[in-house]
Simulated scan of single mutants.
Amino acid sequence: MNLEQLVLRAKRGDDEAFFQAICLQKEKLYKVAFAFLRNENDALEAIQEATCRSYLKLSRLEQTAFFGTWLTRILIHVCIDEQKRQKRLLLDPQKLAQEQKREADLHDRTVERVYIEEALSRLTPTYRQVIILKYFEDRTIREIAVGLGQPEGTIKTWLHKALGALRKDLGKGW
């Protein structure tokens, strides 16, 4: 079935035909959206918004042969709206400062995580396992002891030694 036939069926209320028509256009839509927004997530959101708008206004499409052009035009309007919204955010000094702080915080957390993961990889497998169970999976000493088949005192000792090794590896600032 060609695109024009799918659009005709979609105009008559066939949601599956509308979905298929959109799928036939998805690569072209992505290229247009990405060219405007230069960000994959923003491009995908714009496509989703354009799809929603086109679904709601499908009855207004007069010539089914121009479905692709019509849909692209809707997508371009969505992209322009998004560019305006992003520009307003960038022009607002308070929002810009918040965005820069958020990005700096994210960068700092990423760097810290890399250091911690590297330090964890240098621990013995037993110590690494105890740290992961306690701090990443939020298990109690008792749950760890039962899971590993060890006495609670042993788990406490391993945890103490593992934390000491991490502190030494990462430096006293941690």
Rank of each mutant, 00 (worst) to 15 (best):
R53Q: 08
I141E: 08
Q94S: 13
I155G: 08
T110M: 09
F19L: 02
I132P: 02
K95G: 02
L24A: 07
Q100C: 03
E82N: 02
K101W: 07
Y135L: 15
Q83R: 06
Y30M: 10
K26W: 01
R9L: 13
T72R: 12
D15L: 03
A145P: 05
L163R: 15
I131D: 03
K84N: 09
K87V: 03
G153V: 02
V78I: 07
A43T: 04
V130H: 12
D105H: 05
E143Q: 13
R88F: 03
Q129K: 15
V130A: 15
K95A: 14
E112W: 12
D108N: 09
C52R: 14
A33H: 01
R73Q: 08
L96V: 01
I141H: 09
E49T: 12
K26Y: 02
E49G: 14
T126G: 07
G164P: 00
F34K: 13
Q63P: 04
L8M: 12
A10F: 11
Q100T: 04
Q150F: 07
E112Q: 15
L170C: 05
F36E: 10
Y135V: 13
E82Y: 00
K84T: 04
I74A: 14
E45V: 00
E27Q: 14
Y30N: 07
N41R: 09
K172E: 08
G173L: 07
N39T: 02
K87N: 10
L75I: 02
G171W: 10
C52P: 00
W70F: 04
G149Q: 08
K87P: 02
L71G: 11
R113N: 08
A65Q: 12
C23Y: 02
Q150W: 07
D92W: 01
R167L: 11
W174S: 09
D169W: 08
W174Y: 15
A33T: 00
G173R: 12
K168A: 04
T126P: 05
I144W: 10
Q86M: 06
I47Y: 05
H107A: 11
L75V: 02
L170M: 08
I141F: 12
S121R: 09
G149Y: 06
L56Y: 06
C79G: 05
K161P: 01
R88Q: 05
A65C: 10
L71S: 11
W174T: 06
R85M: 00
E16I: 02
R38G: 10
R142E: 12
R60M: 11
D92P: 00
A10K: 13
A119E: 05
E103F: 08
A104Q: 10
S59Y: 03
P125T: 12
E62L: 03
A10H: 13
K161S: 10
I76D: 05
R85P: 00
E62P: 00
G68M: 07
F36D: 05
L44E: 15
